[in-house]
């Protein structure tokens, strides 16, 4: 397998981690832990997820010596977290229960009539650009609230795919789901954000 292309800064960080540089670990923990927590929270409750991420970092201190760079550092870290979570679930005979059967959020599905046409179409265009909308502090707070209210499975998929820009194939491997199930999780999460922005634009309320 070819080596992944690492940016100069990532290659330098990996060298520093291999040397056990504590400042490098501090930077890596700050930069990589949020997404590692997203992975762990797909499988486990918040407190177990934090414990797993801590354990993974302790493992990384030794394991980084064997890191050959076949994947990016981020993907490598996420696989370590996912594998550890899967082992934890296996040893306690639990599994992640997620509903992949419906691609529409009920709140949106109810807005079509029996012939499949819009009964309650979107009233407003989100005229402003995403950046302009984000400048409104209240919307940002509202987004925070709704993102944290998403089911963990949807939020993990959304974070890894959109915020941390993993390829679909990597997200499927890390979360152990099929490509079509990833599409359902992403679409459901995006609809919830759409519904939230729509309510916010119409009523100014979150």
């Amino acid at each position: 397998m070819d080596k992944a292309v690492h940016t100069e800064s990532e290659a330098a960080l990996i060298d520093d981690l291999k040397r056990g540089d504590s400042l490098a670990y501090r930077k890596a923990v700050r930069d990589y832990s949020p997404a590692m927590l997203s992975v762990a929270r797909f499988y486990l409750d918040h407190s177990s997820a934090e414990e797993i991420v801590q354990d993974c970092w302790v493992t990384v201190i030794d394991a980084i010596q064997k890191f050959e760079g076949r994947s990016g550092l981020k993907t490598w870290l996420h696989r370590i977290v996912a594998n550890r979570c899967k082992n934890t679930l296996r040893s306690s005979n639990r599994e992640v229960a997620t509903d992949f059967s419906e691609s529409l959020e009920p709140e949106l599905a109810n807005r079509f009539n029996s012939t499949g046409r819009w009964d309650l179409p979107p009233k407003l265009k989100f005229h402003e650009s995403a950046d302009t909308l984000m400048e409104k502090g209240a919307l940002s707070d509202c987004l925070d609230k709704h993102l944290s209210a998403l089911p963990e499975s949807q939020r993990s998929a959304l974070m890894l795919y959109e915020a941390h820009q993993h390829k679909s194939e990597d997200v499927c491997n890390i979360l152990d789901i099929s490509a079509s199930n990833l599409r359902v999780l992403l679409h459901r999460a995006r609809q919830r954000i759409f519904l939230m922005v729509e309510t916010f634009q119409e009523s100014g309320e979150c």
Binding site: P34, L124, F126, S129, L133, L143, D144, E162, Q191, I193
Partner: peptide, 23 residues
């Protein structure tokens, strides 16, 4: 209506990406 829906969904996705407080 569907043009508005797809446009708004697209903006929602950009909005999510621009939102950096997911830490």
């Amino acid at each position: 209506h569907c043009r508005t829906f797809v446009g708004n969904l697209r903006t929602s996705i950009h909005l999510m990406k621009a939102h950096s407080s997911a830490h």
